[in-house]
Design a binder for these strands. Structure first.
Lengths: 198, 198
DNA sequence: GACCCCCGAACGATCGATCGATAGGTTCCG
DNA sequence: CGGAACCTATCGATCGATCGTTCGGGGGTC
């Protein structure tokens, strides 16, 4: 159990959000009942409905906040990175890894439970996802156009880099000895080799 | 609808297996009801239970067959690849891509619904999964030890290569212009750059 | 006493699973 | 060669459990 301690009065919203995050991560959206969530939060079903509109809203809020944070991180990283494609590649690798590690649970939920969003919610968030994806595509295409990246197939190189960075969330352990800065160094080096950066 | 045609007598098992595969892929294990599966197969609930032991058995059979095929493909590819680490790397990349493309649906189910296997089934299959993972680890470690691969962090290089190959199942479209042999060429090149193959 | 948080009880729907019954095919006996 | 006996593949009906959601009330704190 994560929270054997009683929920302080007024802390219901937070407790339920955290319980939903943990339950969705462990058993998936359809594998989790709202009774699981309420029990894990140490509250009743009614408290859940007092703070949230329902099960779908719990998932949407989690995924939306997580997706927005990823896009914001990427956007800021690129804005501070200057013009050099190699530096910009490092910036996106760093933003992606920092996001995937700091939001390890939510980012995994966002990736695997995307299809369980209501069509309207999914449509709305698809825009953000596409925008983040475009940041990667523009970056790689620009590097290739300027001759800094020499890979023959930019789309495949981009997909490989993104897949490698995203996969970190599936095996990384915060107390496992290797810190985020070191991780960024290693994966920046890998990314540069993938795009064949001169 | 995939099968508007009536199921020929005796073809129930196949029809239900296919319907389960499609339903699990579209909506996930917990998102699929056995009534969904039976209806998709054009049969009744009773027919499903005549041919299969239940919902969990349908998932287990799918995942088990898929996982076994992957391990077998890897094993055979390595046996035919000789001793050169670069050739062996290509062999595993090819086996992984061919598996991920030819069993695009099942391999995605196996990856995303692994946690929904009963503990006993999951334990049994964890061995196979670990064995396949060890093939990759031994290959990369051997290449590094012999100085053929010069990457500084073999574990990260291996994870990056595997993640890139596995991700293919999430975007590949069989009629999308690029064939499997070409795909193998591209990702072998990417893999060799990742491990810094001389 | 008004308001904020939270509870237990209950709703109809749907879940996975099981039941007995039956239509169509094959086997076997006289 | 006819038909009773048997088997296979399927069906509709139904089980108890659990699902997401709703409702009316009660115990705090101002």
């Amino acid at each position: 159990m994560t929270s054997p301690a009683a929920v302080p009065r007024g802390g219901g919203r937070e407790a339920i959000t955290r319980a939903a995050r943990e339950s969705f991560a462990e058993r998936g959206y359809h594998g989790t009942s709202i009774r699981d969530i309420a029990a894990r939060a140490g509250l009743s079903l009614s408290a859940l409905y007092h703070w949230h509109a329902g099960k779908q809203e719990l998932l949407t809020a989690l995924v939306e906040e997580s997706t927005e944070e990823y896009f914001r991180r990427c956007d800021e990283a690129l804005r501070d990175a200057g013009d050099d494609p190699a530096a910009r590649l490092r910036a996106l690798v760093r933003a992606t890894i920092e996001y995937r590690v700091s939001r390890q649970v939510e980012s995994t939920i966002a990736a695997s439970e995307w299809r369980n969003l209501d069509p309207e919610n999914r449509e709305r968030l698809d825009g953000l996802r596409a925008a983040a994806s475009k940041l990667w595509a523009d970056l790689v295409d620009d590097g290739v156009a300027r001759g800094v990246f020499r890979c023959e197939h930019p789309d495949d190189a981009r997909r490989a880099v993104v897949a490698a960075c995203n996969a970190i969330a599936q095996w990384y352990e915060p107390d496992g000895g290797v810190g985020v800065p070191e991780l960024v160094e290693r994966y920046t080096a890998i990314a540069r080799r993938i795009v064949d950066c001169r």
